[in-house]
Nucleic acid binder design. Structure first.
Lengths: 321, 321
DNA sequence: GGTCTTATAATCATGTAGACTATAACTGGA
DNA sequence: TCCAGTTATAGTCTACATGATTATAAGACC
């Protein structure tokens, strides 16, 4: 329905300057060999994207087109992430605003060969401090003093304390718990502290004291951080993990996938109990011996669950740490 | 009310087909006397909105401007809701796409007098089936047979069963639990079944069998449904209720506000226990006798909590029913 | 003074999450 | 053949959160 035609009686016939360009941008995620990956183009520093054009039926379908064209990868599950529209996104040369509607897509790598121009990158390449599966990552010991230095570099006491507290909460300093969902807050801190290359490009010419993680173009890394945070939150209450799994899988494979996404280890018996009691999966009856030890039961996702319960809550043992 | 303020007289001749118009649209919520309200203009059928213009620093600031201009109401808390960009939003006459970035804003009524052109409407005027505070609302008994009739009107058996199941899950038929977060799914069903006026306008000329709830322009009612669902979900894990409360309040007032939003009653002792043990509030030391019975302690929100914990989870006893 | 209303404290049963232990079934090498 | 290593799977125990219920306190109103 025509939004403008909706009767508040405004005359918009003469509108000119309000027009903007809209980009569609995708964070395509898959998990391969227990590594969570994002699909990139260019020098592994760019997310697939393209302008929202009139011939696109919907932004989702436009996005599918761009991603398939740029990477050869068809998309399955898609959800809207966020619409970025701040002034830094204005095209500087012309007086033109550029906004970006970002999406999170979940697939499996095998679904397509992929063109040579694209590739899957572990998202921990861009956010090395996010992987706590083998304990606290070493980068954090490097990052911490820099963050403290940045905090103490503030002019007034209030800002100093506020910065220290933000860092402590986000990174779990001072005996606080690590909260894996704070990915975006952590990236924002590291950015503000000038510890990533992206921050340096707008500031003075002095090189950053530390480049933490791989660089991405424009605000793409921020968008990936948003996607990680969303996904880490969502797997706890919606059965979206199964979009990333092959048709049949063992419970340990499922656990490894969840661990890859959340960046932390899960207690095995508890994980199994939770998955089984929720009736999210069913045995295929087959087993596989490819896992090394005792052959494991193969399971498949019970798609029927989506019709049975309101929004099948996938509870996962990921509440604390 | 002049929306086309900007006109910097650019040369439109070279514009490509990719340019679109962007509208900002606000669902402004407050709770007055235990009634959850949305701010409307026009015949209580339109949400405040306006085009995203170049002089706006950010969409949020643009939104504040439009809402204040159209309703005289300043906005506090704002969060992005969803970006609507499907083809039905295309301006039919011109080959022009219109997308809408919608926002959820939380305020208190008293904060401004408001212009005569606007007003607060209880959101249950638009969604009478959503209020379960006095038990199952009577509308549901009227709605149910119509929904079943619609389901059985499908041509093939598969669709019939699917429609019945969707309705049963969303509305809690067949001894299922009522899930207050499914507001959007319920509206979509009622819309698809042709039971709201909005649906009739695009279909054949036959009048709808039932008009359930107040009409809103275009897809505004759908946007409100999205906002309600988001808010009902969010109050369970973020302390956003306090944006709707006066500076000091009693615990029962707080409970009534949460009940108003969620559309269901809460067990009083359990509510108090949960609120107090989370240290979200502190006593002011004062009491009020305006509540009828024994004077109640007055509390205030502990803003400090936002700095102490990652994302102060406001647990509320609203999990089941 | 009695009754109404609301506030506030305390109790009890249930269920779930987290941590831990034990046993089963296979592989590969000595 | 036995043993070590690996993984799968079942079961236990404890702490705590949740939901439901009851009891008591303190005011207003008649």
């Amino acid at each position: 329905m025509d939004h403008q035609a909706t009767g508040t009686g405004k005359d918009r016939g003469a509108i000119k300057a309000d027009e903007v360009k809209v980009d569609l941008i995708a964070v395509v995620v898959s998990v391969n060999d227990s590594e969570p990956c994002v699909l990139t183009i260019g020098q592994a520093d760019t997310l697939p994207s393209g302008p929202f054009a009139l011939e696109h039926r919907s932004p989702q379908s436009g996005l599918r087109g761009w991603v398939e064209q740029q990477t050869g990868h068809p998309l399955g599950y898609i959800e809207q992430l966020y619409t970025f529209a701040d002034r830094d996104r204005i095209g500087a040369a012309r007086q033109q605003r550029v906004i970006a509607i970002s999406y999170l897509a979940l697939t499996r790598k095998e679904q397509a060969a992929g063109s040579p121009k694209c590739g899957w990158q572990s998202w921990y390449e861009y956010f090395p401090w996010e992987d706590h599966r083998s304990g606290t990552p070493p980068v954090l010991d490097v990052l911490r003093p820099h963050l403290i230095e940045w905090a103490d570099g503030a002019s007034d006491t209030a800002t100093r304390r506020e910065r220290r507290q933000r860092a402590a909460i986000a990174f779990g300093f001072d005996d606080r718990h690590w909260n894996e969902e704070l990915t975006l807050q952590r990236y924002e801190l590291v950015y503000e502290a000038g510890l990533v290359q992206e921050a340096a490009s707008r500031r003075d010419a002095t090189p950053p004291p530390l480049v933490a993680g791989k660089f991405m173009v424009a605000d793409h890394r921020r968008i990936v951080a948003t996607a990680i945070a969303r996904l880490r939150s969502k797997i706890k209450y919606r059965p979206v993990v199964f979009e990333l799994m092959p048709p049949v899988f063992t419970l340990l494979q499922l656990q490894r996938t969840v661990e890859a996404l959340s960046g932390r280890l899960i207690n095995k018996p508890n994980f199994r109990r939770l998955i089984e009691q929720q009736e999210l999966v069913e045995k295929t009856g087959e087993t596989t011996a490819e896992t090394g030890g005792r052959p494991a039961q193969l399971y498949r996702f019970r798609h029927a669950i989506l019709d049975e319960r309101p929004v099948a809550g996938t509870k996962l043992p990921l509440t604390r740490g």
